[in-house]
Simulated assay, not measured.
Amino acid sequence: MGTVHDDAIAQGWVAGALNVLTLDELWTHHLKSTDVQPDEMQALADLGESLQSSWLQVTDAGALKWLREYVYANAERVAEGAAAADLPDMPEEWANADAVRTKAVLRIDQLLGASGNEDERLSAKIATLRDGSWVSGDLSRVAVCLLLAVSAITTFAIGQALIGGFLATWFTTGGCPQALVSPA
């Protein structure tokens, strides 16, 4: 079982990840229209900068290193939480502590690996908006799926099966298992 302090740090990371996911949804929603007014483009660039800042916080190397150790140490709680959620299409590795120690840690490492590319993509999109040109706004599918996977796993590790189940449902219904096919 994690300490209260460690669980609170993990919960703070999940809150940050949810901020990224909801900012991305908001940004994407408002950039669906190609008929965005110039003043709106500046506001959307500001929103993009908020998204980018939040992205960099949740994908910080130190934060993800700590999270990797936390999830590894709490793999039993992840497996128990995933089993308690009892959802169809739940990734099997989430309900097995040994698999959590390898696959969940792999997802955290993949999230760290995606950090720089997503930061560059966001910077380019923000600059395009600042220049007054339209651009689609969203994180890559892989980045969103990695955030969802790591958030669900971390929430199970905290012992919050209901919230973990919500995130796992978002992960599975969003087609993430197919988007994150693990290397053999």
Rank of each mutant, 00 (worst) to 15 (best):
N117D: 15
G159F: 03
T169A: 14
P38E: 10
G159N: 06
G175C: 07
N74L: 09
L112A: 11
D86H: 14
A152W: 01
F166N: 09
N117I: 08
F166I: 10
D119L: 00
E93C: 10
L180I: 04
E49D: 12
D60E: 10
S50M: 13
L112C: 03
A79L: 13
V58N: 03
A84K: 11
R121L: 14
G137N: 13
Q178F: 12
F166V: 12
L139A: 10
R121T: 09
Q52T: 11
Q37I: 00
D98S: 13
A157L: 09
G48H: 05
S151D: 00
S151I: 03
A124V: 14
E92K: 15
A43N: 10
S140W: 01
G132D: 11
G137F: 10
E76H: 07
P88I: 08
S115F: 06
L111S: 03
G132I: 08
V150W: 06
R141E: 06
L129H: 08
G48F: 06
D98P: 00
P91D: 03
E76P: 00
W94Y: 11
S133K: 07
A61P: 01
A63Q: 04
L67P: 00
Y72R: 11
A157S: 15
M90Q: 12
L129M: 15
E80I: 05
L180E: 02
A82E: 04
P88D: 14
L162A: 15
E49H: 07
A152K: 01
F166S: 09
E80W: 02
P88F: 09
D86L: 08
L111N: 02
D39P: 00
A85I: 05
V142F: 01
